[in-house]
């Protein structure tokens, strides 16, 4: 990618589902190495944005562009986006009965890292390390993907996938919802292992507490399908010093839940 290209950029994105407009012109730029947080009330379009970035067929993009390292994602199938290094940690991961976590992850790894051949043994070794890092039981890898998993296990599974597949850009769609504080710490630990100069991250949340563990460089507030407020490090600093109460006061009680 040339120096002029932005790492990840959304321009005037408008999307609808079943004829109902949800996103009404979203603009968002994330540079390489940055972590952004997107907050907003229920129904503001947060999950829609996450799904549109990944290419969910239930949403129609009516206007706008999404660029990632010089490629317009909207012209690509979800699997092609994944192979470019885009990852979505789902809010509600689905179960695939009969397919073990290990088999699934190996297939996904091979699909997204087509040119490098990784031996199963080496792959399993790294997978076990990641599992340990996320404080998950070793038996996890032989269980069927998300089948009978608790809510917390599903979320850890998403982060395990992220750690294993090593994407270049990830969107976390309310990964923190429904997690207790210990699980939240573990999930954050996993995410922080990935963040760095070669990574971009968009954390979508409805709760401020995850931002204590995953610290964003920028913060955006989405209301009714539009980003109504954005701030850089100075805003983040203000939040650290005086908390999130002003967000609630300014944009409504339901934007952020503590």
């Amino acid at each position: 990618m040339s120096a002029a290209e932005t790492y990840f950029e959304i321009k005037n994105l408008q999307a609808e589902t079943e004829g109902i407009p949800i996103l009404k012109g979203v603009d968002l730029t994330i540079r390489q190495g940055e972590t952004h947080a997107l907050m907003g009330p229920n129904g503001s379009g947060k999950s829609t944005l996450a799904n549109v970035i990944m290419g969910h067929p239930a949403y129609d993009v009516t206007e706008g562009e999404i660029w990632f390292r010089g490629e317009n994602l909207l012209e690509l199938d979800p699997e092609e986006r994944a192979r470019l290094g885009v990852f979505l940690a789902f809010q509600y991961p689905v179960a695939i009965p009969g397919v073990s976590v290990a088999k699934f992850l190996k297939s996904a790894y091979d699909a997204t890292h087509g040119d490098e051949k990784v031996k199963s043994a080496a792959f399993l070794k790294e997978l076990r390390e990641n599992i340990k890092y996320l404080e998950v039981d070793d038996s996890f890898i032989n269980r069927y993907l998300n089948d009978g998993f608790s809510g917390g296990e599903k979320k850890r599974m998403e982060i395990l996938q992220m750690l294993t597949l090593k994407p270049k850009f990830a969107v976390m769609d309310e990964t923190d919802s429904g997690l207790d504080i210990d699980a939240l710490k573990v999930v954050s630990k996993g995410v922080n292992k990935l963040t760095g100069p070669d990574f971009g991250l968009l954390v979508i949340t409805h709760y401020e507490r995850i931002l204590r563990y995953i610290q964003p460089d920028h913060l955006h507030i989405l209301i009714d399908g539009k980003i109504v407020h954005s701030g850089g490090p100075e805003l983040v600093k203000r939040l650290e010093e005086s908390g999130y109460d002003w967000v609630r006061e300014e944009f409504g009680q339901e934007v952020l839940v503590s």
């Binding site: 290419g55 969910h56 789902f90 699909a111």
Partner: peptide, 11 residues
């Protein structure tokens, strides 16, 4: 289900 697996790179 199909979208989930495609989002992980599977055709």
């Amino acid at each position: 289900q199909i979208f989930y697996l495609k989002s992980r790179g599977l055709s």
